[in-house]
Each structure stands twice: as structure tokens, then as C-alpha cells.
Design a binder for these strands. Sequence first.
DNA 1: ACATGCGGGACTGCCCGTTCAT
DNA 2: ATGAACGGGCAGTCCCGCATGT
Lengths: 214, 214, 214, 214
Amino acid sequence: VSPRHRPPTGSASERPATHPSGSGLRERRKAQTRRTIQEHALRLFLSKGYDATTVAEIASAADVSHMTFFRYFPSKEAVVESDDYDPLLVGLIENRPSEEGPLSALRNAVADGLSRIYATDRDALLVRTRLILHTPALRARMGTNLVATEDLFAAALAARLHSDVTLEIRVIAAAALATLTTALTAWVDGDGLEDLPSLVDDAFDVLTHLAAEG
Amino acid sequence: VSPRHRPPTGSASERPATHPSGSGLRERRKAQTRRTIQEHALRLFLSKGYDATTVAEIASAADVSHMTFFRYFPSKEAVVESDDYDPLLVGLIENRPSEEGPLSALRNAVADGLSRIYATDRDALLVRTRLILHTPALRARMGTNLVATEDLFAAALAARLHSDVTLEIRVIAAAALATLTTALTAWVDGDGLEDLPSLVDDAFDVLTHLAAEG
Amino acid sequence: VSPRHRPPTGSASERPATHPSGSGLRERRKAQTRRTIQEHALRLFLSKGYDATTVAEIASAADVSHMTFFRYFPSKEAVVESDDYDPLLVGLIENRPSEEGPLSALRNAVADGLSRIYATDRDALLVRTRLILHTPALRARMGTNLVATEDLFAAALAARLHSDVTLEIRVIAAAALATLTTALTAWVDGDGLEDLPSLVDDAFDVLTHLAAEG
Amino acid sequence: VSPRHRPPTGSASERPATHPSGSGLRERRKAQTRRTIQEHALRLFLSKGYDATTVAEIASAADVSHMTFFRYFPSKEAVVESDDYDPLLVGLIENRPSEEGPLSALRNAVADGLSRIYATDRDALLVRTRLILHTPALRARMGTNLVATEDLFAAALAARLHSDVTLEIRVIAAAALATLTTALTAWVDGDGLEDLPSLVDDAFDVLTHLAAEG
DNA sequence: ACATGCGGGACTGCCCGTTCAT
DNA sequence: ATGAACGGGCAGTCCCGCATGT
């Protein structure tokens, strides 16, 4: 969650409007390079540890120059943190039926988005989350990233309600994100043996029943 | 919230067994020194900025040696992060009447603890929170500290229920802490003009009514 | 011992379902490529030294691209460390007759596996072990790899006993692996002139008679 | 286990023979400085993580210069690895009654030495061991350090037997050290809640009964 | 007075991240 | 878009001037 760097897809003005995103040969090559770099990086982090792996090694493994690495990722940390989940989730939140309350919309959007991610990127998600939780340098940045994601969620909820970002909306976004993070933490603590969507579902059950339980 | 450093309370052998912790002259002097250092540090941070203030300046302002500073705080960051709120809150959580549910216990303990803190340390709390939120080096450490506090809250709730730390307990602790943090952030963003206990109360109202709002 | 990288066996969709793993033409070609790269790498390491040999040289000697090298090995170190002995040994341990005690099963599995390896890969094993013991960058990684192998051994023993991984099982696995490593070290120190299976046998004799010797 | 750096106590030849080690004011001050540096370093490693802590911070916390740090410890890693246990244990091994077999002598010496260490340095030992096992940079060096300790143990056993260092002696030393390491690992995995001497005792019980269990 | 440890500043080498020229 | 060169930070080293215990 929370990518802070738009990869070189060409700025919106250059991209011919006739082609949907990801069609051009160049774009596909770039996405491929990006994936290649990330895969090699995660494999090396897993094998040697995050700090012990240098950017030069990653670049050499992915057969690109030191510089090209930084063209695709603004920092070494970003290669672990980077995903495209935030815009996906924001889109899902905004497209939820308008009769759903804020928390239901958030929960359903997260469940929906996560099931897609889980189906295709399960292993990468596990490795990345484990690294983020176990590496001091990354865990430190997590706080900042979560705040950014929280702001996005709050803004998406406010848009649904045609409202400003109130304290109420911020609390809902913060609580939901804390719930999601708790489920993710439990998942990696169990070495990924449990089913993440179920954990997330259980966690949100707790949240939605808070009033009753008191 | 979340001190990670036990100040020099004197080893068990020095402490007179007849007096409960905190009574002896030595202990009071040490607590006084600690407070003095922290006050001077916050004053200097406020006037010169965090990064521009060196440990040597703080020590000389508090009229102690560089070494004594580090006997009370493990690092320059700790002087801002360190407070005794965690044990206070944990104690309040555990002493809530046993018929209260986990969230009610947490909310009431936080409201109670915060009203005490607010009455005596309002200005220091505002300065410290503002520094933590606005100083990169401190904001980075915030994530780790929040996780530690969350674990303490979860453990306190588990103790109340004579239970292990389950996913449910962790979700409640995480959501409550996220709620508290949201209120604190709103308070600082409003420059401390609003009433913090009211903000916290409003925020917890949102959390406890989540099921209804959906 | 202890490969940490699954070579490209082809994704599930490419592999013809009719053939068990290892039979298809593609798989055989890939295993062949992998072996070719490793052989050229070891030859170059032996003649020029590990550090003085670059990945580019290995790739060009094996007549593959730089990128292909990293598709088969995650790093330059892995080309020395990587072998398929761990799964072989784990399989042998689990298939030992169930009346054998843990240490006997381990010892017999190791003796069996090693005699096969020794018959076909003796020279490569000698070169690789010598490199690992004499190259600082590789010796450093040895510790981590041994821990991983130890965990696999312990898990295999636990599976045989339908038990959890207890302290007892871990001690047996650790002691057996230390014994094996000692024999390997003695073998390399004697420049491979002595017979490795005999050394291993002698070493395990010492281990199994520890109670008597006191 | 396994210190590699003698702090500046003055070499044995320079030190006036009339004074027992540690008598002069200078020596005591140096030992004190060394302890101070180590304590601050461990506290900072615990609070911020090993890699995120710089030598400059440690030095500043201990109120010494960057340079003085390196006078006392040859590297940042050494401040975690360094202890005086190896000579202690070697001495205990050599002074065991000569009728004890090699393994009994090793086991009793380790149990004896460990109980002393445990009584006075339990917390530091826990922190240091945890750091070594959980920090890639330190875990990597562990292998090398263990080999060095193993050689010392083997040499001490050989001296007791007025023998050369044979394969048998090396196997015994390696197995005993693997056993000790397994107990230490189990100890930190349990967060230090169990009793280390008991764990070590249990682990050696397994080792001495290997022949019977087979 | 002498020896020795300590601090300051500068230097190497490695690594992250950026800029510039092509 | 790539390569080469650069700035900044950190680990680790060296030399020299200074203070302190013996």
C-alpha cells in the first residue's frame, strides 16, 4: 500500500489518448523492466538481508545500470514499499454503491482488492510485508506511508459523501487501516500459513462489532 | 506514549525496602533531574529547532554533564518521545471494572489518563506531539513506538480477560490507538486551540458507533 | 548443501501435465544449462580466483547472456553454494525405516546420499567446499546456510516421529551437521587425498560413542 | 564467546608484574570506559536497530570521540560479539579433573562458566545473542567466530589429553558447540523466559545419550 | 619528567542518490 | 536513455598535539 513514485510511463500529455494504459510496446517493456528489478531485489533481500544487499548488486542481477535502478525506483526502500494498491483501493472505494456506509464501503473495497492481489501476488506480498515489518529502516518508513494511505482513504470517503474530510472520516479511515495492518501482521507472524483474506475478514468483523462488545 | 528506557531508579539493592517505589529521596531527585533535562530540551527545540540543538547545549542548559544526559535518556530522540504515559495507561486499563468490555475499558482509561495529563502537562504534550509530527527524524521513529504501545495495550486487555493475545484483542488495541492518534493529530493541526479531551471523546464516539453507521 | 533458489522449472502453465517433474525436454535443457553455467564458473574461480572472476566472464564462457545467469542463480555467491543435496538428504531421511532412531536415520541418510554424490560429483564437491571455506565472502554466508540446512534436517526428523520440532530434535540435527562439516573440513584440509565417506563414517562413530567416552 | 580483540590494557610484557590485572587507576578507567561504550551501544541497538545506529551516535552517547570507540573495539560488530568468555571457558576446560572424559569436561566447564555468566550478565547476554541471531551482518560473522571458538575448545581438549588435535577431538568440540548454540537459540526464541542453564543441561543430556537413542 | 591514552582533523573506501553530457 | 562523474554519509585509519596518572 502507498506507492509514492510514478514509474516512467511517460507523462499524461505525451501518451496518445487513443491507447489505454499499458498498450504501447514501450510501456510494456518498462513495466517488464520494473518487475524484473523488483523480483531480483526481493530475492536478494531474502537471501542476504536488506541492508547487506547493495543497489549495485540488484542492478547487476537485473542487468541494468546502477542509474537505471533509480529511474524506476526513487530509493532502495521504494523497491520494497512500492505497489499499485493505493489507487486500486481508492478506485474501489469510490465505486462502491452509494447506499453503503463509509466503513462498509471501505471493508468491501479492501476485501475485493485484496482478493485480487492475493490471487496473483501472494508470495511477493508476503516477502514484502515480512521485510517491511522486520527491517528497521523499512519499519520506520511504514508510519509515514500509512499516514499517506490514510489520507487517500479519507479523501475517497469524503468524495463519496460529497463532504469535507471531517474528524469522523479520519477516524474511520485510521481504524480501518489499523485493522488491515493488524491482519497483515498476524499473517506474516504465522509465516503466511493462514489465509490472509480470512484474517482480514475476521479483523473487520471485530471492528464492525465494536459497539456491541463495548 | 511509549517510553523504552528505564531511568536510573537505583538498583534493587540500593532502594530502601521500606518505601514503595518513588518515595525515597534519591528517586525523587532523579525524577526531578529527568524532568529538568526534558524541560530545557523542549524549550531549546522550540526556540532553535530540533536538529540545530546539540546534546551538549541541552546538558549545559540543564546544568548536568553530557554523560548524565545519556544516563537519563538513551538518545536525543528519546527526550522527546519519552513519557511515563504507557505504564499509567496500562495500569488504568487493568484497573477498570471487570464488567466493562475491552473497548469501553480502553476508552475510559484513555479518557481518565488523558484528563490528568492534560491538566498538568498540556503545554509539554503539545510541544512534544508537534515536534514528533513535524520532525522527520522523530516522525520516522513514531511507527515503531506506536507498535510497542499497541502491544502493551493488547497485553493489558488480555490480562483483564485472562486470555491470550488474540487477533480480536489486537484489532481493538490497534483501532483504539489509531483513534487516539487521529485526535492528537487534529489537536496539533489546530494549534492546540481545541480541547483535546473533547476531541478524543468525539473520536471514540465515532469508533463505538461504527457498527450502526456501517 | 542448502540451495535457496528454485531454478526456472517453467511456470505451472508451461509444464506439460502428463510428465512428472524433470522429464520434459524443457526441464532437462534447463537443468543442463544450469550445470553448464556452474561448471564454467567453478573452472574460472579455480583458475583466476573467486573475486577476480566477474559474472560477465562466467556468462560469456557458458555462452549465455548476463541476464540468463541471474535467471538461474540469484547471485554470484549462489553459483558456489547452490546444490540439490538438501532435498535429496531430506528425502533420504524421511524414507529411512521407521525403527531407526533419529541419529541412525540421519547418519545412514547422509552416508547414503554422500556416497552417491561422491561417486558422480566428487571433484565439483571438493572445489566448491574449498572455495566456500577459503573465500571470505562465501565463508561469511556459510553460517546462514548451515542454519537453514539444520532447520530442514530437524523438520525431516520431526516428520518421521510425527512430532513437533523439539529441543532434542534440534540438538541431534545440529550435532550431526557439525559432525558432517568437521569431516568435510578435514577432507578439504587434506586436499581431498583421503576418502570422504570414510572420514564421515569415522566422525559419526565418534558422535555415536559419545555417551561411552563421556 | 570468541573475542578477537584485546582492549588496550597494555601487553603483558609492559605491565608491571607486581600488580594483578585491573589494579592501577588507568586500567580501571579503561575497563569502565569499555563497559560504558558497550552499554550505550547495546541500548541504542535495541532502541533503533543495529544498522540504523551509527558509531558516531554511540560515541556521543558514551561521551567519547569517534576515534576512542575504535580504540576499544576494532569494529562496530565487535561491540556486540566481544566478551571474555572464551578464555574463561578454556581455563575451566583445562582445569577439569583429568579422569573426566573430553565430553564430560567440556559439558561441566560450560555449565560452570555459564552459571557464572548467567548470574551477572544475563540481560546483556540475552540482548547480545538476540542481536547476533537477528542481524544479518552479525549472523554472518557468527560462523567464523564459532570456528575460532571450536579450535580453542579442541586445542584445550588436546592439551588435557597430551595429544594432537585429532578428528575425534574436533568432532567432540564441534558437537558440543553446536549443542550450546542450539540451547542459546532456543533461549532467545523464547524471549529469555526459560532458564538458560537448564536448557543447556537438557541439550547436553540429549548429546550424551545419543548412542543409546541412536 | 615520562609514558600513555585521548581527541581533532583529515583521509580512504564503500554505498546511496543526483546531475550532466552525450 | 545511458554512462560517468559527483556529493554526502558512514566505517575504519593515521598522525599529531594535549592532558593525565605514575
